[in-house]
Simulated scan of single mutants.
Amino acid sequence: MFNIEKLVRQNIRQMKPYSSARDEFKGTATVFIDANENNIGSLAGNNYNRYPDPHQKKLKSRLAKIKGVEPEQIFLGNGSDEAIDLLLRLVCRPGQDALLQLPPTYGMYEVSANLNEVRIDTVQLTADFQIPVEEVLRQLKPETKIVFICSPNNPTGNSINPESIEAILDAFDGLVVVDEAYIDFAHNPSWTTRLQEFPNLVVMQTLSKAWGMAGLRLGMAFASAEIITYLDKIKPPYNINEATQELALAALEKSEELKFMVEEIVQERELLTHALPRLKSVLKVYPSDANFLLVKVTDANGLYNYLLGNGIVVRNRSSLKGCEGCLRISVGTLEENQQLLQSIEEFR
Rank of each mutant, 00 (worst) to 15 (best):
N3Q: 01
Q10V: 11
E134Q: 10
Q101M: 12
D289M: 05
N116S: 04
V133T: 06
T333A: 00
E264M: 10
G322V: 03
E163I: 05
E180H: 02
N305Y: 13
E70V: 07
Q56P: 00
V313Y: 15
E336S: 10
F185Y: 09
S159T: 13
Y306Q: 01
Q124G: 03
I84M: 13
E242Y: 14
A35R: 09
P52H: 05
M220Q: 08
P142W: 07
S42R: 03
S159W: 08
V133C: 00
A21D: 12
D85H: 11
R22Q: 15
S151R: 04
V111R: 11
V8H: 08
Q96G: 03
N241M: 10
G45Y: 06
N78I: 13
S42E: 04
E135A: 01
D85T: 09
K209C: 09
T122A: 09
N11E: 15
R217Q: 13
N36S: 13
T122Q: 13
N3P: 02
P199F: 01
K296S: 11
E110H: 12
T192P: 04
D128I: 08
N188G: 14
R317M: 14
K254T: 11
F25K: 15
P103C: 01
C323K: 05
I234M: 00
V331I: 10
L279M: 08
L252E: 06
F129N: 00
G79S: 10
L271S: 06
V133A: 03
R22N: 13
G325F: 01
E257K: 15
L249R: 06
E346Y: 09
E197A: 09
